[in-house]
Simulated scan of single mutants.
Amino acid sequence: MKKHFSEDERLADGSAPLEPSALLERLAELGIEAKTVEHAPVFTVEEAKALRGELEGAHIKNLFLRNKKGRMWLVTCLEDREVDLKALGELLEAGRFSFGSAERLMSYLGVRPGAVTPLAVVNDKGGAVTMVLDKAILDYPLVNAHPLVNHMTTALTPADLLKFLEDAGHSAQQLDMSAAARAEG
């Protein structure tokens, strides 16, 4: 079995991040039907759009954020959502947001930049990251997310995503992200 993470890529507790195959096994153990496709690695929404073909359902982007106090959030929203970080910080009563570093991302979620996904909360055993989910995602029949690496996409139902997040100890705070949308102008 191919390892996707090197020996020096470790979580804050010193353990190795979950491998994609183990994540997919966990989904199956939970009775979650998921369909996974492999593709060239993608790092941006634009690259994903160009490669996705006919994958149905919600396509998402994920923002790994922290505030001045060091608290962290993983915000999953529709891929085309323009997010005003100041407005989002106010909505979440978090203060000013900045993006978390690649090192922090690996330490807490066990993924690299470009592979950020709500499924990565499985690696946050200490509950340091707050999961926030755009309510609009729940209106789609399927949600497409990376299974911890950016060269695969896994589709699952919104109900199953919520079930997984709950099982991982990260029940999602559901938020109307249109309230945090960047103003046109």
Rank of each mutant, 00 (worst) to 15 (best):
A179N: 04
E25C: 10
A136S: 15
F5Q: 07
V121R: 00
M106L: 13
R10T: 12
D13M: 06
E93V: 04
R81T: 15
V149E: 01
L51Q: 14
K3L: 13
E25I: 09
G127W: 13
E33H: 10
F164R: 01
R81L: 15
A40N: 10
E82M: 09
R182E: 12
H151L: 06
N67Y: 07
S6T: 15
G110H: 03
A179V: 02
L55T: 04
V129A: 12
F43L: 11
A87L: 11
G185F: 05
E93I: 00
L51T: 11
V42S: 08
L23I: 07
G70F: 09
A159P: 00
A58V: 12
E184N: 08
E33V: 13
H4M: 08
A179E: 12
P158V: 04
R96N: 09
E7L: 14
V121I: 13
G31S: 06
L85M: 09
L65M: 07
T130E: 15
L27N: 01
T44R: 09
D13A: 08
D176C: 08
A48T: 12
V75I: 12
D167C: 08
G127C: 14
K163A: 08
A16Y: 09
V45D: 08
G126C: 06
A12M: 02
V45N: 10
R26L: 14
T117P: 03
E184A: 14
D8A: 12
V75K: 03
R96F: 05
W73Y: 10
T117S: 13
E46L: 12
K135G: 09
S178A: 14
N67T: 10
G95L: 09
T76D: 05
S178I: 13
A102F: 02
T117V: 01
M152D: 00
F99G: 05
W73M: 08
V37Q: 11
H170I: 12
S21V: 07
S178T: 15
R81Y: 10
P118Y: 00
E25L: 12
L85V: 03
V111A: 06
S21F: 00
R104Y: 00
C77T: 15
A181P: 06
L148A: 06
A136E: 15
R104A: 14
T36D: 04
L175T: 10
L18H: 13
D84T: 03
L85Q: 05
G89Y: 02
A128W: 03
